[in-house]
Computed example of a mutant assay.
Amino acid sequence: MTALKACKILITGANRGLGLEIVKQLSEDSCQKHIFATCRDPDGSKSEALRELAKKHPNVITIIRLDADDPCSVKESAKKVGSLVGKNGLNLLVNNAAIVANGTVQTSSVEDMKNTFNTNVIGPLLIIREYLPYLQIAAKASGTPGMSCNKAAFINISTIAGSMTRIPSIYNQFPTLPYAVSKAGFNMLTVLAAEEIKADEILCMALHPGWVKTELGGDDATLEPKESVEGMLRVIGSLTEKQHGRFLDYTGETVPW
């Protein structure tokens, strides 16, 4: 399975796609964990698979409402999780929730630009801000030097569509300007957050999951969610301060900004 031994873990966008697969694989791990699986509408039809998974692992998975596009929801979720994590804090937060909108310079709507930026950049910013105190607690409680995802970490699930180096070669095939621009902003958020929190010894980095067959990735994608998540969890479990502020893919290879 995975070398990840973090005890308290929060996953955003956990009701479908990669988020759901991450929760599934972590819940099957032999290491004792408490997973906070967050999503926009825990009681809705799109969260049925997550609810069923939580029923199978009632002592491991707690479902929390968190809408990345709603600052009040982010704040309320942090209060709830904070009341549950205890004196050792939160070890790992995976910023996975995101939306996609297609378009080009000539066709992208103002609404799509605003919506993708709100969910993919402002949402993660607020999540990092609200949950930072609980990761600071975990970092201090660990009593160990250095950085790791078992101690305290923010992992931001990004994409090569947010890479200014890589996007030109795939833009004709994937004309998703609102998504690409928002993910480039997300990558900058990762770099600056990493700079701010390095003194707290909280690891922060961006991770590209590959092109995955999910609702977001589409049926033509080359990877199954299981394979992508297995790779990401191996990478996450191996991270140290050497990868702080970096951009890697699910195999551990560096992705250019």
Rank of each mutant, 00 (worst) to 15 (best):
T12N: 03
N15L: 01
G19V: 15
L20V: 08
E28K: 04
E28I: 13
D43Q: 14
G44K: 04
S45I: 11
H57G: 04
V60H: 11
V60W: 11
I61R: 15
R65I: 05
C72A: 15
K75C: 01
A78D: 09
S83F: 12
V85Q: 15
L90N: 12
L90S: 12
V94D: 03
N95F: 06
A101H: 12
S109M: 08
K114H: 07
T119C: 05
L125V: 01
L126P: 00
L132C: 11
Y134M: 09
K140G: 02
G146F: 02
M147N: 06
A152D: 10
I155F: 03
I155S: 04
G162H: 04
I167D: 10
I167A: 00
Y171M: 10
Y171T: 12
Y171R: 14
P178R: 03
A180K: 05
S182R: 04
L192C: 07
A199P: 13
E201P: 00
I202F: 10
W211V: 01
E215A: 05
G217V: 03
A221F: 04
S228Q: 08
G231V: 14
L233H: 11
V235N: 00
T240K: 03
E241A: 10
H244W: 03
H244V: 14
G245L: 06
R246Y: 00
F247C: 02
L248Q: 03
T251E: 05
G252E: 02
V255N: 05
